[in-house]
Design a protein around this nucleic acid. Structure first.
Lengths: 221, 221
DNA sequence: GTAAAAGCGAACAGACTGTTCGGAAATTCT
DNA sequence: AGAATTTCCGAACAGTCTGTTCGCTTTTAC
């Protein structure tokens, strides 16, 4: 019952004995799992804002002190779920997505980056809905948006790296455009549950957004 | 001290005596103005979520009971500011925007719809930041998004009214795309304060988004 | 000037937060 | 299996915020 999540795994890659990625005390795993499950269920029922720590406690059937032994507050608990998802996404992308610049130049072998993301979201729909949907917590959404913005910015910077003229639209504006369009379509898809597959959403996203990106970045060299 | 805002102005277009839009009790005006000003200032300082009714009361220097005589809760107060802004926007649009379909066919006399919106936001920057920016309240943002979605949907439905073939991308997807891109650029512009005028932002928005809309709606007839 | 409306301020019950404690229970290590 | 450690429990706590009530005072409209 030492500290909070922030302290966990400080040791990095070194572990005490033979077993890699040493499992924590079973009670700890159990408690955290129960808390996360309770939170997710409650968010889907009432929306993040209306869920209190008290609700989570009651649902998970755990003591108050126990919660604060593991998480600083409600946000902290939600973020822990987000980090888990991030790991899963990383693996998914490595498996299905085309190597690079997929969102600017959709001609490679795998599906595009956007498609891969929609795909992953479709598989983990429940969790995505909680983290990214309208019922979810704004804090995590902002966090995710930030990460995603960095990703897109890198892609587009690479795309205009060796041009001479400045693009017709400032790069940052185009970045914001892409991110907004993507997240907007994603959350709409998650929340209103239309009959399109993740792959279809990815294709539609590309049809809509890529022409604008081309226009924003300027003539290809 | 009867009821809340919801009851106000029920009479619609009929007023008791000669004066149109009869002014309310001066104390009422004063109180509401003080509350709104306090809320706006506090949101810009701390962000909507962290502002409590108590804060607003202290800042406005009003009694607790007085607040609840006018507004149901914090959200209600914020929404009242939103409605005020909406009125102002309506007038602004009537004055500067091109008549219709401005976002699909940017060739008319005035500036485009998007440009007009950016323009208005630039003039009322402070209030817009509070209502639409990241520090603002999610509830109002959702509300605004809803209204704006209806507007865009109508425009696009009109644009595809007499086609025979279905568009390559379902209309609703295109609608969500346009709304997301617009609101994304708007909030970014409001929050991070880049050196572009509202008119410039409107033009950039059109450069980025219109190609996608054309692709999404399909070949023009 | 009078009557009606609005503001005041104090007090209230209810909910939630985040922290503390010692004792009870589970788990790990040997 | 037994000892040492870690975690959980549960109750209680001070503190904050909400939304409502009440009788009294002030301001306003007519």
């Amino acid at each position: 019952m030492r500290g909070h999540r922030s302290e966990a795994n400080v040791s990095g890659k070194l572990f005490g004995n033979g077993e890699r990625r040493r499992a924590e005390d079973r009670r700890v795993r159990r408690t955290r799992r129960l808390l996360r499950e309770a939170l997710v269920a409650l968010i889907l029922e009432k929306g993040y804002d209306k869920v209190t720590v008290q609700d989570v406690l009651d649902r998970a059937d755990l003591g108050r002190a126990t919660f604060y032994a593991h998480f600083r507050d409600k946000d902290d608990l939600l973020v822990s779920g987000f980090e888990e998802l991030q790991e899963s996404l990383r693996e998914h992308l490595a498996r299905v997505a085309r190597p690079s610049r997929a969102d600017v130049d959709p001609s490679g072998g795998g599906i595009g980056l956007a498609g891969a993301l929609f795909d992953h979201a479709g598989q983990q729909r429940r969790l995505y809905r909680v983290l990214m949907g309208r019922r979810g917590g704004a804090a995590v959404f902002k966090h995710a948006r930030g990460q995603f913005t960095v990703l897109v910015r890198e892609h587009l910077e690479e795309a205009v790296a060796n041009r001479q003229a400045a693009p017709p639209v400032p790069l940052e504006v185009t970045v914001q455009y892409v991110v907004s369009a993507f997240l907007g379509l994603l959350t709409w898809w998650l929340d209103s549950d239309p009959p399109y597959t993740g792959e279809q959403m990815g294709r539609m996203f590309e049809q809509l957004v890529i022409p604008g990106v081309r226009a924003g970045l300027g003539p290809r060299l």
